[in-house]
């Protein structure tokens, strides 16, 4: 079982991760982060650990470990 972690402090709300998540585990949160951007929301239960979000994230917010 893969484990996804999101560093919300780094998130700038580009939502490239949201656009490529096949399971809608990542969605816009409607909450502002420390930098003033709307950050992403993670539903870890839905994550299948495909890694697409990691690959698209330009801000190094996401890691997935086995």
């Amino acid at each position: 079982m893969s484990k996804i972690s999101v560093d919300y402090k780094r998130c700038k709300g580009c939502f490239l991760c949201v656009s490529v998540c096949p399971k809608n585990a990542l969605t816009p949160s409607k909450e502002l982060g420390a930098k003033g951007y709307e950050i992403v929301h993670l539903d870890g239960e839905k994550c299948i650990g495909c890694g697409s979000c990691y690959r698209m994230c330009p801000d190094y917010c996401i890691e997935i470990t086995d």
Partner: peptide, 13 residues
């Protein structure tokens, strides 16, 4: 450090 590019910029990738 925070990556310095705009949101969604490809440079970070």
């Amino acid at each position: 450090q925070q990556a310095s590019w705009c949101p969604g910029c490809g440079h970070g990738i």
